[in-house]
Design a protein around this nucleic acid. Structure first.
Lengths: 285, 285
DNA sequence: TTAATAGTGTCTCTCAGACAGTATAAA
DNA sequence: TTTATACTGTCTGAGAGACACTATTAA
């Protein structure tokens, strides 16, 4: 690594973008949604984009420089552009991000991906329980949870349907997203699917106490295909440390009848052994 | 995403670091090695570090700016600091990097990770067939393939032994590596182990034509534990598209006797179904 | 009482791993 | 001929998936 010489190396801007995913019920179907903002400024004004922005070195009250961690920048951007408060904000308990799981996805640095200048973007992936509708902030003209994927029929047809194809619901055309954000979103969806296989992170999409059915709906929404309910049930309970029985049940059964479901909370496992593999799709080659 | 205003945002330097892994025979044991350079300049002068350097926007012969892709920067740093020529260099066929597999690992941007300034480093992971010893270039005082992990005994003891504990071989102390490179190396080893499970990338560590035993030695070196040879053999041949029979065999058997081994080449699968899971270690929780 | 929802029993098939044994080649 | 190395046969147990079934509750 050579010594840094500003005469040789032009500055490169660094941004952070966040792919925040949640499950929301759409037309009675639990559906995977992604948080998007409509850009108010060029480039790509009017287009939908992932929430994000420049990473900034900041100066504290005492004058010392206090550089921002990349993950912290991701949380800040989520908060700024959507009105969802970060965990440090005590006044907005209802809009909190403190139960959001965040992990780094990848870094995108192809020349020309931002028409203004060389920009390298570190993308983060976030899993959130159902949060309120966001309110646009910062430079965003709008912000919304947008559906991204249907559960599919399980008949072998591609389970992913482009957003934009769902009923009368306002959706976004993946082909018209700003920058290379459609690519980032695709990578995020693949990472999310994969994470559900070998980690218990599906629980980050649901309330602290949840039923096995709710957990299955998370898998179905993210994987985009229906699962065999009885086998899923047995599987979840058999994986050590995945879920923990609370001893409680739901207050009542389904709307049109049905047994009350047992309530579970997240167990202490950080990885699932054996994993919940999504087979039957195969041929990803 | 806000408009970029240099008065608000100080420049952040972007570097690329490469964790290049290969298998070399050490004391008769195929052993995982990582390519390291000894730093010639402060900070961390004299310490071992991953090869890497600043990403630079460059200006072409015609005056047009020609920004460098992040992956391209990784290959360039590998070449510059180690004397291993990139694939475009036709004159150094013996030292080529054109069979090297490269993928992005993660980005490290904690404040203070470089004492000079705010530096965000995009780390890449490379798998290489046995390459020649590198020659130090750029600002490196030395460059070498260093052993990182032993095959272990399979008796349940931790299979990872700190580099530095191997015989009379020159090795490096992971605790004394420059920057946060020990952490990056750990992340790389975990990613590499995981990649061998569900992709055929083990073949990138061996020659274009290889035996099943050679392939097993890759798995053993990366996973740090011995595998059951007969079952491994059957498993590899049963996974569709993993390897392809050449019809040839090795020219002769083992040094002290033994059957000639059949030669295979890499198949067309990009993922392994079913995967070669490393079980028996469990409890990564 | 019916229908919906939650949950269990059990069978089959695949696959990982263990172990025993065969095939072939070098010294 | 001995020993090393490559490879095959076969058994066992775990787990995924299919299907049939029981349990419980709302309307």
């Amino acid at each position: 690594m050579a010594t840094y010489d500003p005469r040789r190396y032009e500055p490169i801007a660094v941004t952070v973008d966040v792919v925040a995913l949640t499950i929301r019920v759409l037309e009675s179907v639990p559906t995977l949604h992604v948080l998007l903002v409509r850009r108010g400024q060029p480039p790509f004004a009017g287009r939908w984009a992932l929430p994000g922005g420049f990473v900034r070195p900041t100066v504290g009250p005492d004058g010392t420089r206090h550089d921002e961690d990349l993950a912290a920048a991701a949380v800040r951007e989520l908060a700024e552009e959507t009105g969802l408060a970060a965990s440090t904000d005590q006044r907005a308990a209802d809009r909190r991000l403190d139960r959001v799981y965040l992990e780094q996805l990848a870094t995108y640095g192809a020349p020309g991906r931002d028409p203004r200048m060389r920009v390298i973007s570190v993308a983060y992936l976030a899993f959130a329980p159902d949060l309120p509708d966001p309110t646009a902030g910062g430079d965003a003209a709008a912000a919304a949870w947008m559906p991204v994927r249907t559960t599919g029929t399980g008949d072998g047809a591609p389970a992913i349907r482009e957003v934009g194809g769902l009923g009368g619901t306002p959706t976004v055309d993946r082909g018209r997203m700003a920058f290379d954000h459609a690519r980032i979103l695709d990578d995020a969806l693949e990472r999310a699917s994969s994470k559900l296989e070998y980690t218990p992170l599906a629980t980050t999409f649901v309330a602290p106490e949840f039923t096995v059915t709710e957990l299955r709906e998370v898998y179905e929404a993210v994987w985009g295909r229906p699962l065999h309910a009885p086998n899923f049930h047995r599987k979840v309970l058999s994986v050590p440390g995945f879920v923990e029985d609370t001893g409680e049940t739901t207050a009542r059964g389904g709307a049109r009848g049905g047994r009350r479901a047992r309530l579970y909370r997240s167990g202490d496992a950080r990885f699932l052994h054996p994993a919940l593999l999504r087979l039957g799709q195969e041929d990803t080659r």
